[in-house]
Design a protein around this nucleic acid. Structure first.
Lengths: 129, 129
DNA sequence: CATACCGTACTATCACGGTGATACAGATGC
DNA sequence: GCATCTGTATCACCGTGATAGTACGGTATG
């Protein structure tokens, strides 16, 4: 797997894991029906605890995004793609909404906020790889 | 005081309090030299624990934004305004940067991201009061 | 059958944010 | 002087996120 965890992010690690798996499904990096790394392997790769990974898997299983077969491994369900795409948009939009709400509430000047948004958006484009 | 607390925000309550005081100073809602509500009063207003407010005050005191006098109350220092203005910009920009980084990392389509940003920015304008 | 891997389920432990309660020292106003 | 406000400090407690270790049942492969 190809993503990284930020332990001091405010966002719980198990949630970062489940999110990034969702994102990978949404973008097509993981295809429905495909198997994903085991709890223990993913925990080793991300240098986090297997329990934390297991919890992320359990959450995704509850959302019918992952399907686990005891003794075999974990696979992405066939209905997962659409769910992950809409969930991805929702997550991004919600987080963006929070930031903008805080910006509004801070009485930051309208034009200045617009300038920050534009600058950071351009910046993030450059950092895209 | 005029701000509200979101207990289930991921952001610690004591940090929300200190932030919003900073924002109020930055925007001129509280002027340097002015007294702010006491620990107990603010705790009562926000329906949170006095210890939590005290911690926010202590943090701001460590940054030389607040000046406390035992037995009297808490006042905004005279150098606070500039500090708060730059801190506000930094906070907003950092949070925005986090969201954009996550959006990039999710492989969300460039145009779609742009559309979400525009839509939410317009939305937040309307919700401004 | 034996081994190795898989997911799952516990129990214990720790750090941190938050609450609740209490106590103390300094300042103010009557 | 005394009551009452102020900030400060300390204690115990709880919930949650995370770690660590162990154990159990199912599956695949030899």
């Amino acid at each position: 797997m190809f993503f990284q965890i930020n332990p001091s992010n405010g966002i719980p690690v198990y949630e970062q894991v489940s999110r990034q798996i969702m994102f990978a499904v949404a973008s097509g990096s993981i295809l429905p029906g495909e198997m994903i790394p085991s709890v223990r392997e993913l925990a080793r790769e991300l240098a986090i605890n297997p329990n934390t990974v297991a919890r992320a898997f359990r959450d995704l299983q509850d959302q019918n995004i992952l399907q686990t077969v005891r003794g075999t491994g974990v696979a992405v369900t066939h209905g997962a793609r659409a769910k992950c795409i809409s969930a991805r948009t929702r997550v991004i939009r919600d987080r963006l909404r929070d930031v903008l709400a805080e910006a509004r509430q801070s009485q930051l000047d309208e034009a200045e906020l617009q300038a920050i948004i534009d600058a950071e958006f351009e910046n993030s484009k450059k950092r895209k790889h």
